[in-house]
Protein backbone atom coordinates (compact mmCIF):
# COMPACT_ATOMS: atom_id res chain seq x y z
CA UNK A 1 0.00 0.00 0.00
CA UNK A 2 1.46 3.35 -1.04
CA UNK A 3 1.29 6.40 1.21
CA UNK A 4 -1.44 7.87 -0.99
CA UNK A 5 -3.50 4.68 -0.83
CA UNK A 6 -2.94 4.55 2.93
CA UNK A 7 -4.22 8.12 3.30
CA UNK A 8 -7.24 7.53 1.06
CA UNK A 9 -8.20 4.24 2.74
CA UNK A 10 -9.82 6.14 5.62
CA UNK A 11 -7.76 4.14 8.15
CA UNK A 12 -6.11 7.30 9.52
CA UNK A 13 -9.49 8.93 10.32
CA UNK A 14 -10.59 5.83 12.20
CA UNK A 15 -7.20 5.82 13.92
CA UNK A 16 -7.60 9.38 15.24
CA UNK A 17 -11.21 8.69 16.30
CA UNK A 18 -10.03 5.61 18.18
CA UNK A 19 -12.42 3.34 16.30
CA UNK A 20 -9.87 0.62 15.53
CA UNK A 21 -8.94 -2.38 17.64
CA UNK A 22 -5.99 -2.02 20.02
CA UNK A 23 -3.72 -4.01 17.67
CA UNK A 24 -4.76 -1.94 14.62
CA UNK A 25 -4.21 1.28 16.59
CA UNK A 26 -0.68 0.17 17.48
CA UNK A 27 0.09 -0.88 13.91
CA UNK A 28 -1.07 2.44 12.44
CA UNK A 29 0.83 4.32 15.17
CA UNK A 30 3.97 2.50 14.08
CA UNK A 31 3.33 3.18 10.36
CA UNK A 32 2.74 6.87 11.07
CA UNK A 33 6.03 7.34 12.91
CA UNK A 34 7.86 5.92 9.87
CA UNK A 35 6.20 8.19 7.31
CA UNK A 36 6.20 12.00 7.68
CA UNK A 37 3.43 12.29 5.10
CA UNK A 38 1.15 10.03 7.12
CA UNK A 39 2.16 11.99 10.20
CA UNK A 40 1.12 15.22 8.53
CA UNK A 41 -2.20 13.77 7.46
CA UNK A 42 -2.92 12.44 10.97
CA UNK A 43 -2.25 15.87 12.43
CA UNK A 44 -4.55 17.52 9.89
CA UNK A 45 -7.36 15.08 10.74
CA UNK A 46 -6.77 15.66 14.45
CA UNK A 47 -6.83 19.45 14.00
CA UNK A 48 -10.16 19.26 12.15
CA UNK A 49 -11.70 16.98 14.77
CA UNK A 50 -10.46 19.25 17.54
CA UNK A 51 -12.14 22.22 15.90
CA UNK A 52 -15.33 20.30 15.43
CA UNK A 53 -15.45 19.07 19.02
CA UNK A 54 -14.60 22.50 20.34
CA UNK A 55 -17.51 23.94 18.39
CA UNK A 56 -19.87 21.62 20.30
CA UNK A 57 -18.68 22.82 23.70
CA UNK A 58 -21.31 24.85 25.58
CA UNK A 59 -18.43 26.81 27.11
CA UNK A 60 -16.51 25.67 30.12
CA UNK A 61 -16.66 27.79 33.28
CA UNK A 62 -13.22 29.04 34.18
CA UNK A 63 -13.62 27.95 37.84
CA UNK A 64 -13.61 24.29 36.82
CA UNK A 65 -9.90 24.33 36.18
CA UNK A 66 -9.26 25.64 39.66
CA UNK A 67 -11.49 22.94 41.18
CA UNK A 68 -9.52 20.25 39.38
CA UNK A 69 -6.19 21.76 40.43
CA UNK A 70 -7.28 21.72 44.07
CA UNK A 71 -8.34 18.08 43.82
CA UNK A 72 -5.01 17.17 42.27
CA UNK A 73 -3.08 19.02 44.96
CA UNK A 74 -5.05 17.11 47.59
CA UNK A 75 -4.20 13.83 45.86
CA UNK A 76 -0.58 14.80 45.62
CA UNK A 77 -0.37 15.63 49.33
CA UNK A 78 -2.28 12.52 50.35
CA UNK A 79 0.01 10.24 48.34
CA UNK A 80 3.16 11.70 49.84
CA UNK A 81 3.77 10.21 53.30
CA UNK A 82 2.57 12.51 56.06
CA UNK A 83 5.15 11.47 58.60
CA UNK A 84 8.58 12.27 57.29
CA UNK A 85 11.27 10.16 58.88
CA UNK A 86 13.96 12.60 59.88
CA UNK A 87 17.28 11.19 58.88
CA UNK A 88 19.38 14.32 58.80
CA UNK A 89 22.78 14.34 60.48
CA UNK A 90 21.44 16.73 63.08
CA UNK A 91 19.10 14.09 64.42
CA UNK A 92 21.95 11.60 64.67
CA UNK A 93 23.98 14.19 66.55
CA UNK A 94 21.01 14.70 68.82
CA UNK A 95 20.75 11.01 69.58
CA UNK A 96 24.48 10.68 70.08
CA UNK A 97 24.51 13.67 72.43
CA UNK A 98 21.61 12.21 74.43
CA UNK A 99 23.35 8.87 74.80
CA UNK A 100 26.61 10.53 75.82
CA UNK A 101 24.78 12.66 78.37
CA UNK A 102 23.01 9.61 79.80
CA UNK A 103 26.31 7.73 79.96
CA UNK A 104 27.91 10.72 81.68
CA UNK A 105 25.15 10.92 84.27
CA UNK A 106 25.40 7.19 85.02
CA UNK A 107 29.18 7.47 85.34
CA UNK A 108 28.84 10.38 87.77
CA UNK A 109 26.30 8.44 89.83
CA UNK A 110 28.67 5.47 89.99
CA UNK A 111 31.53 7.74 90.98
CA UNK A 112 29.41 9.32 93.71
CA UNK A 113 28.45 5.90 95.09
CA UNK A 114 32.08 4.73 95.10
CA UNK A 115 33.16 7.84 96.98
CA UNK A 116 30.39 7.37 99.56
CA UNK A 117 31.50 3.77 100.12
CA UNK A 118 35.11 4.91 100.50
CA UNK A 119 34.08 7.51 103.08
CA UNK A 120 32.08 4.88 104.99
CA UNK A 121 35.05 2.46 105.06
CA UNK A 122 37.46 5.23 106.05
CA UNK A 123 35.28 6.48 108.91
CA UNK A 124 34.88 2.89 110.18
CA UNK A 125 38.67 2.48 110.10
CA UNK A 126 39.03 5.75 111.96
CA UNK A 127 36.61 4.56 114.65
CA UNK A 128 38.54 1.30 115.02
CA UNK A 129 41.81 3.23 115.36
CA UNK A 130 40.24 5.49 117.99
CA UNK A 131 39.06 2.45 119.93
CA UNK A 132 42.53 0.94 119.64
CA UNK A 133 44.08 4.16 120.89
CA UNK A 134 41.70 4.26 123.87
CA UNK A 135 42.50 0.61 124.59
CA UNK A 136 46.22 1.23 124.33
CA UNK A 137 46.01 4.25 126.59
CA UNK A 138 44.04 2.26 129.13
CA UNK A 139 46.55 -0.58 128.95
CA UNK A 140 49.46 1.83 129.31
CA UNK A 141 47.79 3.43 132.33
CA UNK A 142 47.22 0.09 134.03
CA UNK A 143 50.76 -1.01 133.26
CA UNK A 144 52.00 2.25 134.79
CA UNK A 145 49.93 1.62 137.91
CA UNK A 146 51.26 -1.89 138.09
CA UNK A 147 54.81 -0.65 137.67
CA UNK A 148 54.29 1.88 140.46
CA UNK A 149 53.17 -0.89 142.77
CA UNK A 150 56.04 -3.14 141.75
CA UNK A 151 58.36 -0.23 142.45
CA UNK A 152 57.02 0.16 146.06
CA UNK A 153 59.88 -0.38 148.56
CA UNK A 154 58.07 -3.12 150.44
CA UNK A 155 57.04 -5.09 147.39
CA UNK A 156 58.86 -8.39 147.22
CA UNK A 157 59.66 -10.12 143.99
CA UNK A 158 59.11 -13.85 144.08
CA UNK A 159 60.06 -16.54 141.63
CA UNK A 160 57.61 -19.41 141.28
CA UNK A 161 59.55 -22.03 139.29
CA UNK A 162 57.65 -24.46 137.10
CA UNK A 163 56.79 -27.87 138.50
CA UNK A 164 59.20 -30.54 137.31
CA UNK A 165 56.36 -32.85 136.38
CA UNK A 166 53.91 -30.59 134.59
CA UNK A 167 55.87 -27.60 133.32
CA UNK A 168 59.57 -27.92 133.89
CA UNK A 169 60.50 -24.97 131.69
CA UNK A 170 57.77 -22.64 132.93
CA UNK A 171 57.87 -20.09 135.67
CA UNK A 172 55.72 -17.37 137.15
CA UNK A 173 56.96 -14.09 138.53
CA UNK A 174 55.08 -12.63 141.49
CA UNK A 175 55.22 -9.30 143.27
CA UNK A 176 53.85 -9.44 146.80
CA UNK A 177 53.05 -6.45 149.00
CA UNK A 178 52.16 -7.74 152.37
CA UNK A 179 51.05 -4.35 153.76
CA UNK A 180 48.56 -3.77 150.94
CA UNK A 181 47.62 -7.44 150.75
CA UNK A 182 48.19 -7.36 147.01
CA UNK A 183 49.80 -9.85 144.68
CA UNK A 184 50.77 -9.29 141.05
CA UNK A 185 51.30 -12.38 138.92
CA UNK A 186 53.08 -12.57 135.56
CA UNK A 187 51.99 -15.85 133.97
CA UNK A 188 53.46 -15.13 130.52
CA UNK A 189 55.81 -18.11 130.84
CA UNK A 190 53.04 -20.65 131.65
CA UNK A 191 51.60 -22.79 128.85
CA UNK A 192 48.04 -21.92 127.71
CA UNK A 193 45.51 -23.88 129.79
CA UNK A 194 43.76 -26.70 127.87
CA UNK A 195 40.05 -26.42 126.92
CA UNK A 196 37.77 -26.58 129.96
CA UNK A 197 40.60 -25.93 132.43
CA UNK A 198 41.76 -22.76 134.24
CA UNK A 199 44.72 -21.70 136.36
CA UNK A 200 43.96 -21.04 140.03
CA UNK A 201 46.26 -19.17 142.41
CA UNK A 202 46.72 -20.29 145.99
CA UNK A 203 48.11 -18.64 149.12
CA UNK A 204 50.08 -21.09 151.19
CA UNK A 205 51.10 -21.31 154.84
CA UNK A 206 53.26 -24.23 155.95
CA UNK A 207 53.20 -26.49 158.99
CA UNK A 208 50.61 -27.45 158.53
CA UNK A 209 50.25 -26.87 154.80
CA UNK A 210 47.17 -24.73 154.34
CA UNK A 211 46.22 -23.62 150.83
CA UNK A 212 43.69 -20.80 150.38
CA UNK A 213 42.31 -19.81 147.00
CA UNK A 214 43.20 -16.26 146.12
CA UNK A 215 41.66 -16.29 142.64
CA UNK A 216 40.76 -18.19 139.51
CA UNK A 217 42.91 -16.37 136.97
CA UNK A 218 40.26 -16.63 134.23
CA UNK A 219 37.90 -14.63 136.48
CA UNK A 220 40.38 -11.88 137.30
CA UNK A 221 40.76 -8.96 134.94
CA UNK A 222 44.17 -9.02 133.40
CA UNK A 223 46.39 -6.95 131.20
CA UNK A 224 47.44 -8.91 128.08
CA UNK A 225 45.97 -12.08 129.68
CA UNK A 226 49.28 -12.54 131.49
CA UNK A 227 49.45 -9.89 134.21
CA UNK A 228 47.04 -10.35 137.07
CA UNK A 229 46.53 -8.14 140.14
CA UNK A 230 45.04 -10.03 143.04
CA UNK A 231 43.85 -8.21 146.18
CA UNK A 232 42.93 -9.22 149.73
CA UNK A 233 45.79 -11.65 150.04
CA UNK A 234 46.01 -13.18 153.56
CA UNK A 235 49.33 -13.62 155.34
CA UNK A 236 51.22 -16.08 153.20
CA UNK A 237 54.44 -17.99 153.25
CA UNK A 238 54.30 -19.11 149.68
CA UNK A 239 52.15 -19.16 146.48
CA UNK A 240 51.18 -21.91 144.07
CA UNK A 241 49.44 -22.16 140.71
CA UNK A 242 47.42 -25.28 139.83
CA UNK A 243 45.33 -26.29 136.81
CA UNK A 244 41.71 -26.76 137.82
CA UNK A 245 38.42 -27.49 136.04
CA UNK A 246 36.41 -24.50 134.77
CA UNK A 247 35.17 -22.41 137.68
CA UNK A 248 37.95 -23.39 139.99
CA UNK A 249 38.13 -25.74 142.99
CA UNK A 250 37.89 -25.47 146.80
CA UNK A 251 41.13 -27.33 147.34
CA UNK A 252 44.11 -27.46 145.00
CA UNK A 253 44.74 -30.53 142.88
CA UNK A 254 48.42 -30.98 143.68
CA UNK A 255 48.87 -33.40 140.80
CA UNK A 256 48.23 -30.46 138.49
CA UNK A 257 50.63 -28.10 140.24
CA UNK A 258 52.31 -25.87 137.67
CA UNK A 259 54.31 -23.40 139.70
CA UNK A 260 55.20 -23.07 143.31
CA UNK A 261 57.37 -20.64 145.27
CA UNK A 262 57.98 -19.55 148.83
CA UNK A 263 58.66 -16.12 150.30
Amino acid sequence: MTTKEYIESGLLELYVCGSLSTEEQARVAEDVTKDPELQKEVEAIEAALMKLSKATSPGLRSTIKNDISLKIKKRKSSTTPKVRVITSNYSYFGWAASILLLGGILWLLKLNQDLKEEIRVSSQELKNKETQIVDSNEKAERLENLLQEVAQPNTKKLNLPGNELNAPNAFVTAFYNEEREELILDTSQLPDPPEGMVYQAWSLTFEPLTPRSIGVLAQVSSIDNNLFKLQGIPNSEGFGITLEPDGGSDTPNLEQLYALGTI
Partner: peptide, 24 residues
Protein backbone atom coordinates in the same frame (compact mmCIF):
# COMPACT_ATOMS: atom_id res chain seq x y z
CA UNK B 1 -14.90 16.55 32.80
CA UNK B 2 -13.46 16.90 36.30
CA UNK B 3 -13.35 13.13 36.67
CA UNK B 4 -11.69 12.82 33.26
CA UNK B 5 -8.88 15.23 34.05
CA UNK B 6 -8.26 13.64 37.45
CA UNK B 7 -7.98 10.31 35.63
CA UNK B 8 -5.59 11.95 33.16
CA UNK B 9 -3.47 13.07 36.11
CA UNK B 10 -3.59 9.69 37.85
CA UNK B 11 -3.14 7.49 34.80
CA UNK B 12 -0.87 9.56 32.58
CA UNK B 13 1.84 6.93 32.91
CA UNK B 14 -0.38 4.40 31.07
CA UNK B 15 -0.24 6.49 27.88
CA UNK B 16 2.49 5.81 25.34
CA UNK B 17 2.92 7.09 21.75
CA UNK B 18 3.05 3.46 20.60
CA UNK B 19 -0.64 3.09 21.44
CA UNK B 20 -1.71 6.07 19.32
CA UNK B 21 -2.40 9.77 19.58
CA UNK B 22 -2.63 11.47 22.98
CA UNK B 23 -5.84 13.12 21.77
CA UNK B 24 -7.28 9.67 20.99
Amino acid sequence: LQDVFIKVWDKSDTYSTEKGRFFT
